[in-house]
């Protein structure tokens, strides 16, 4: 596949993320890839040990990604779900299976540079086997119209002794209306790290994220970190859920949200539950402005309060 066979606006929006397009287009670079142009599969690249299959359905695709037992790849698997239209419905059904003893990174790029009424839905199922190291990153670019409705749902099973890292970034462009729900089930000795960042920039932006970890196996551990900024009337609501349902499991939920400008709203609703007396679950949340001490430290370097705030937002939402 050549670069000019894929909508330039989508590629440009990815390049704006500092993503190296050369390694991203099928036929280039070393990793597996699946590119979607609205509801059509625009290109697929497979590598040894990773089966990648897509099937088109009326409003989107079903994508099966199977990491075969023992496969270890440094090069990430790239998934690009691009829509170069203002409106329409894109539905993605990814089914990801990482067999035992695998190590892989999956990077999903969702680019909707012209969205103005566009609907993007995802129903993802992840099965991560034993002794795996699985890293999933999803980054969104929604243009500047706040015109997308994004509703991804993910169910993730993480097997014994596996490490699962989830990074979800919604900080570039303007998000629009976003409803995200992630449920992660952690088995024995597994480690979960889930980082979510969102930036609501105007009153057209409304973001609701529920990130849940269910510690079902003995000695399973998790940390959920949710960070958000709401400014100029933007709204962010974050639910961080952790349940300790097994002996000696350990979970923590951390939520930091910054509110800037009139009419902006940030809300955090941590929900933690422990049903085993040997488990340990905790949460902390802070909402409002940056600590005055942080601002003072930067202002003592000659920055104004506004400049210091921008630096801190950039740092907070950095991928």
């Amino acid at each position: 596949m050549r670069r000019n066979e894929y909508p330039q606006e989508i590629l440009q929006s990815l390049e704006d993320y500092s993503i190296d397009i050369k390694d991203f287009i099928p036929g280039h670079g070393g990793g597996a890839k699946l590119l979607l142009n609205f509801n059509k599969i625009a290109g697929v690249d497979q590598v040894e040990g990773i089966i990648l299959k897509g099937r088109e359905i009326p409003n989107g695709i079903v994508a099966d990604i199977i990491i075969k037992e023992g496969t270890k790849h440094e090069e990430p698997v790239h998934l690009c779900f691009g829509v170069n239209k203002e409106t329409g419905v894109q539905e993605i059904f990814p089914r990801i299976i990482a067999e035992d003893n695998t190590s892989v990174k999956v990077q999903a790029h969702c680019s909707f540079p012209k969205a103005n009424g566009l609907i993007h839905k995802m129903f993802g199922h992840f099965y991560i086997g034993k002794n795996c190291n699985f890293n999933y990153s999803e980054t969104h670019y929604h243009g500047e119209n706040s015109g997308a409705l994004v509703a991804p749902v993910g169910y993730m099973y993480i097997g014994e002794n596996s490490v699962f890292e989830n990074n979800f970034n919604l900080t570039q462009g303007t998000p629009g209306k976003v409803k995200i729900m992630i449920d992660i089930y952690a088995m024995q000795n597994s480690i979960i790290r889930s980082n979510i960042k969102a930036y609501g920039k105007s009153k057209k932006d409304s973001i609701r994220i529920r990130d849940s970890v269910f510690l079902e196996g003995e000695n399973a551990r998790s940390v959920i970190k949710m960070k958000a900024v709401a400014r100029n009337g933007g709204e962010v609501l974050m639910y961080g859920v952790t349940e300790g349902n097994a002996p000696h499991c350990n979970g923590h939920v951390e939520c930091s949200e910054i509110v800037l400008g009139k009419g902006s709203i940030c809300r955090a609703r941590p929900f933690i539950r422990a049903i085993d007396p040997t488990s340990s679950i905790s949460h902390e949340a802070s909402l409002g402005r940056f600590p005055q001490k942080w601002l003072d430290e930067l202002m003592a370097k000659g920055l104004t309060e506004d400049e210091a705030t921008e630096i801190l937002i950039e740092a907070m939402l950095k991928e």
Binding site: P291, K293, W294, E297, L312, E314, A315, M316, L317, K318
Partner: peptide, 8 residues
């Protein structure tokens, strides 16, 4: 006690 700022 200088601040610890994640991401900077």
């Amino acid at each position: 006690e200088p601040a610890r700022i994640d991401g900077l």
